[in-house]
């Protein structure tokens, strides 16, 4: 449906929308700008927007004085590790629910989702104690396990909604063509569902990357991902604006880029298909 819209009307809306959009985005932009300032310029009054001495000293300082790379790597391992492990467990489960629905399927799915509603404080104490007694505290393995479990319902759910869009006749055709279950999953379902699997991976990596309850409570120095690393700036160190900005920019930039690619999947994944 294309319709002529008066230019003035369009201009008004454009100005309003852009003003609000820029206001919302401003803190991120400000952080980005500040990360290239010296500490002195960062707290200058009046604030400096563009005409300051652009330099990388804050980034250098963060990399020299802290173990930034280690925490970054922890974030990568934990978010990708938990998501990939989750996918390996969820693909077969979602196949079963999407293509071999039984009377209980809906209930199982709903029950899986309901575990996602469990507030973390309801289970944090036992998990903390179990981890302490098994040596999983402050390890990447421990966090991979926990984040995999808290995101598993979303992974199963998203895959299920993607699989459900694949016509069952195609899998039946594969069966008629002599494919056993393994071949059916490997040669037909997985390649067909690849876009959906990739979206699921993307969204859940983002969620795991930004998770800030378990990562803060189950790690200390060794396995701390970026969420916990940044939290250490809450002390007076946070008053060094340039360094805080540099560390923050490095922590959010990769995920911001991934996030912009995953807008559509975000809605699907976080509303459990209730909004399309």
């Amino acid at each position: 449906m294309a319709r002529a819209v008066s230019t003035r009307r369009k201009a008004t809306f454009t100005v309003a929308a852009w003003a609000i959009a820029l206001a919302i985005f401003f803190p991120i932009l400000w952080t980005f700008l500040t990360s290239f300032k010296t500490e002195g310029d960062a707290i200058a009054s009046p604030p400096m927007f563009v005409f300051f001495d652009w330099n990388l000293s804050a980034y250098e300082a963060v990399n020299q004085r802290t173990n930034y790379l280690k925490h970054f790597w922890n974030s990568v391992v934990i978010s990708f590790g938990s998501t990939i492990l989750g996918l390996v467990i969820a693909v077969p489960a979602a196949w079963a629910m999407a293509f071999v629905p039984a009377k209980q399927t809906k209930n199982v799915l709903m029950w899986m989702l309901s575990t996602k509603m469990l507030p973390p404080v309801g289970v944090v104490i036992p998990i903390f104690l179990i981890f302490r007694n098994t040596g999983l505290l402050d390890t990447r393995t421990g966090l991979v396990i926990v984040l995999m479990l808290i995101n598993l319902p979303i992974i199963v759910w998203m895959l299920f909604t993607y699989f459900r869009e694949i016509p069952g006749e195609i899998l039946e055709a594969a069966r008629m063509d002599g494919a056993d279950l393994r071949s059916e999953l490997l040669y037909v379902l997985t390649p067909m569902a690849m876009p959906g699997i990739a979206s699921t991976l993307l969204l859940n990596v983002i969620l795991a990357w930004n998770e800030a309850f378990w990562t803060l409570n189950l790690t200390a120095a060794k396995a701390a991902p970026l969420t916990a690393f940044i939290a250490s700036f809450s002390s007076p160190e946070g008053l060094f604006f340039a360094k805080l900005s540099a560390a923050s920019t490095m922590a959010i930039a990769p995920i911001l880029v991934l996030g912009w690619f995953s807008q559509k999947q975000l809605v699907r994944g976080l509303t459990f298909g209730a909004v399309k």
């Binding site: 500040t34 930004n210 800030a212 969420t227 940044i230 911001l256 975000l266």
Partner: peptide, 24 residues
Amino acid sequence: ARVLVIAPFFVMPTVSALIWKNMF
């Protein structure tokens, strides 16, 4: 415009809290 509006969702909670607390 849409991309700009969505951006804060991808900022990890510790980062957004600290930026607001300190820089604003």
